[in-house]
Design a protein around this nucleic acid. Sequence first.
RNA 1: UGGGGCGUCGUCAAAUGGUUAAGACACAGGGUUUUGGUCCCUGCAUUGGGGGUUCGAAUCCUCCCGCCCCAGCCA
Length: 559
Amino acid sequence: MTSADKGNSVDFIREIVERDIREGKNGGRVHTRFPPEPNGYLHIGHAKAICIDFGIAEEYGGLYNLRFDDTNPVKEDIEYVESIMRDIKWLGFDWKDRLFYASDYFDIMYNYAEELIEKGVAYVCDLSAEEIREYRGTLTEPGRNSPWRNRSVEENLDLFRRMKAGEFSDGARTLRAKIDMASPNMNMRDPAIYRILRRNHHRTGDRWCIYPMYDYAHCLEDSIEEITHSCCSIEFEDHRPLYDWFLNRLDIFHPQQIEFARLNLTFTIMSKRKLAILVEKGLVSGWDDPRMPTLSGLRRRGYTPEAIRNFTDRIGIAKRDSTVDMALLEYCIRDDLNRRAPRFMAVLDPLKVTIENYPSGKCEELEFINNPEDASAGSRIVQFSRELYIERDDFQEEPHRKFRRLAPGREIRLRYAFLITCVDVVKDEDGNVTELICTYDSETRGGNAPDGRKVKSTIHWVSAEYAVMAEVRLYDRLFTVENPLASDSFIETINDESLKVLNRCRIEPSAADLDIGEPVQFERMGYFCKDPDSTEEKLIFNRTISLRDTWKKILKNQE
RNA sequence: UGGGGCGUCGUCAAAUGGUUAAGACACAGGGUUUUGGUCCCUGCAUUGGGGGUUCGAAUCCUCCCGCCCCAGCCA
């Protein structure tokens, strides 16, 4: 959706961008960036940020950079840079040759730091981490100046060069910005801008033993790349004065930082740390578990990039804290898949049906429409035979008042096949229904009766002879409550039924040849895709999302 | 209790002092239907609270209330 589709209303960021273009700021350029730290996997909250950063640049004919903000080697790894690039590409964005790393700028950043020292606005501080904390003061009390605050430029320069040269141990000294220890904004109380840290960096190896801090590094990265609009999440709002401070002292290109609210979603969590707990404790199978809000999880689950992009367009952008209803994401994936997913028959919980007046060994080929929403999807041939499977839920021996499907003596339609009537129910010694004996009307091939009689329902089926076995993994929301973090222990709110594995599913044979991840609809059951765990011998499907279930609602509303 | 930010339908979110406060999701009802799907129709808020300015206020002023963020040598 572009801004034009939304009428005249655009979000506040686009409003700023449009005004800047109109006023010729930055020569009318729009240049954004998405700056992840490669320390974990991307989740749908990042997708929102990516769609804002990259989407806006695309919309206004600008450029966008992918930049890895790799200034802390303690937490970063090449594994993450690879997964991040994979996920962004999957979302459909192409940063072309504009791939950058903060670590590419370490030399420039170092030189700028010397410049700050020369200008008398940065100094080497010998306070320990603990002492710095004590000197910083509190939210209500001002901090105190470091005893090292007034070193000469020469001494600072000498010390800083020796920090770089590796003369001091980790944590022994820092380079700090000389701002205001009494500032009501804690970020302005002489923040550290370089720390001594001997750690192998995934790109620069052991070349550096000092690393720049975020507040110092980020504005420089943006400036060096001549970013015009630097969007970030709301918690950086009170870092903006610092962002501006560095750029003003250095008197270099000055991007505008704009903050927006991060995405929260009901029935899940977005915290990287807490998601990691789920992975570590084995509560999910990994970062790409289909129940995870990670992009790799959503992809494996069967979510499409189009659905996710549509979702991020629909939620809008604002500054207030908000929690979007998971139902909107679910709506978006159903909406996308309804239009594109070819239909197949699959019986998840099989109940055998024998058509007693259908000759054994006979097989008829029936024509099935691949997608009623898309005529160009064409049709396919499906085999019909004497022995079939239907969904166990599609039969009730003593039908509920509103139940329209199969019951003793009742005639219903087998989709695209025949009208059948249940004439007998076979049970085991415990009284469980094991098989249905039905008759069919050979005049109703295709599903319509020549005499025009109607039936109340149409159910799906597979031929017992031709269907293939599959495992189907039914996923549901990972948590039982809207806000798991409001609970004392979010772990305890995990939905025990968020994964159900069905082993005896029978699917129409043509569905066996699907590619991994290719979305399909199993008619009346939901949207599914083949899981990468599938092998030649064993087919495994994931349920992306069920169809909307009015029947479930009818039952619920009766309670 | 210092500073910064934010309060509009159940949930997101428009509205930029001027007709009945958009739209979407959700929810409720109805219609169509060879998926109890899709699709179509209908219903669904006076803007955190109080004062004030104005012919006119969600928009401006003011007082109050509530929520979020900040005291890493993380980002």
